[in-house]
Design a protein around this nucleic acid. Structure first.
Length: 361
DNA sequence: AAGGTGCCCAACCGCGTGTTT
DNA sequence: CAAACACGCGGTTGGGCACCT
């Protein structure tokens, strides 16, 4: 590990990873004589290293009182606490953790703890909830799929207009980065309602932990998963009498259904192994080995059909508008105010954001 | 199975501060 | 007091390795 260049060009001294033989020489010498002057030590110990390299090797690795292995939960908590008080003063922090070196703590902070704090929404520098709303707002606007942006900045939010594949991909593209972007949406019913409403077209339950971090609401997640389960039960228990004509009798069935408010009927799901929503169509794919017959309506086309009535609300909950048009204006801010609800949409909220924007470098 | 990718962490580097001459 | 030296600190690097495609 570490650096590669074997020897320093100028001094001819060895660099890079230490060999067991070098370690032994260093340990033996220090046990016998103490380290004394680090600069003088290598020569006396018979090592072709600089004093600095010897000191580092000893203090970070060879010292007998060094504790190895995973950091305990208590140690983690203590590091976070001390970091909140001392900042990046690794050596000061290390003095409060017996057996741990500053280097080890620094590495652990940078690779684990920092990320942990970010994920739970805490700024690892200030140790306070992240408040970079303006950056998040800009990032959110910048990253929004055009379809979403259009929906949000239009007079009203019509969930029917949003491609759930795009929304879902967007939402889960990078959980850590998006946690706070999502929090901007959190006060609106947009995200939650969308997920619940579209549970029918998702084939696997959401990652509870990830979603929990984003939404912070067990109830909504449970509702989502219970809707999903109901729908899957319904689909799996559907009568095999009402077969769909896929237009194919064998492999690679790919059936598409129009996605509208007047969905009706039910279908045999036994041979469907994947469903997803694409644009305004439900796309089913799977293998159909039996001959199938048409039970659809007059609107059926080769791979697109509407299927007869009953129980359909279980599969495709009726779509509805989330938000009515605002009185007159169509500004982005006003649209956001509506999404975010009264509390965070107050004048002072936006004033704060604008202030932050104008004061940031 | 092989190649690619990203993470981890030991070791290095540069700089600031304290000590000695 | 200033210059030289020694040490320690925090940031950065890059090889090894585990995991993913």
């Amino acid at each position: 590990m570490g650096r590669s260049a074997e020897f320093d060009d100028m001094s001819g001294l060895k660099k890079g990873p230490w060999t067991p033989e070098e370690d032994q020489k260093l340990v033996d010498y220090i046990h016998k004589n103490g380290h004394g002057n680090w600069r003088a030590l290598p020569k006396l110990a018979g090592l072709n290293r600089c004093g600095k390299s010897c000191r580092l090797r000893w203090t970070n690795y060879l010292r007998p009182d060094i504790k190895r292995g995973k950091f305990s939960e208590d140690e983690e908590k203590l590091i976070v606490k001390l970091h909140s008080l001392l900042g990046n003063k690794w050596s000061a922090i290390a003095t409060r953790l017996p057996g741990r070196t500053d280097n080890e703590i620094k590495n652990y902070w940078n690779t684990h703890l920092r990320k942990k704090l970010l994920q739970i929404g805490i700024d690892p520098v200030t140790h306070r909830p992240r408040t970079d709303h303006i950056n998040l707002f800009n990032a959110l606007i910048g990253n929004l799929p055009p379809q979403l942006l259009a929906a949000i900045t239009s007079n009203y939010i019509n969930i029917n207009n949003i491609d759930m594949n795009i929304l879902t991909n967007f939402l889960f593209s990078d959980t850590a980065q998006l946690v706070h972007q999502i929090q901007l949406l959190n006060n609106s019913s947009l995200l939650v309602n969308s997920l619940i409403r579209n549970a029918t077209t998702t084939t696997s339950p959401l990652n509870i932990e990830a979603l929990n971090q984003i939404l912070g609401s067990q109830n909504q997640i449970q509702e989502y998963n219970s809707t999903l389960m109901n729908n899957q039960e319904f689909l799996s228990s559907s009568s095999s009498d009402s077969l769909i004509d896929f237009g194919l009798n064998s492999s690679n069935v790919h059936a598409e259904f129009t996605h509208a408010n007047n969905f009706s009927g039910k279908l045999d799901y036994q041979e469907i192994n994947d469903t997803k929503l694409g644009g305004d169509q439900l796309i089913l794919s799977g293998t159909c080995s039996t001959s199938s017959s048409v039970t659809g309506s007059e609107n059926q086309t080769k791979n697109i059909c509407k299927i007869p009535n009953e129980n359909t609300s279980d599969i495709y909950p009726k779509q509805e508008l989330i938000m009515q048009p605002s009185s007159a204006s169509t500004s982005t801010f006003e649209a956001w105010e509506q999404i975010m609800g009264d509390e965070e949409a107050s004048d002072s909220y936006w004033t704060d954001i604008i202030d932050q924007a104008s004061s940031s470098p």
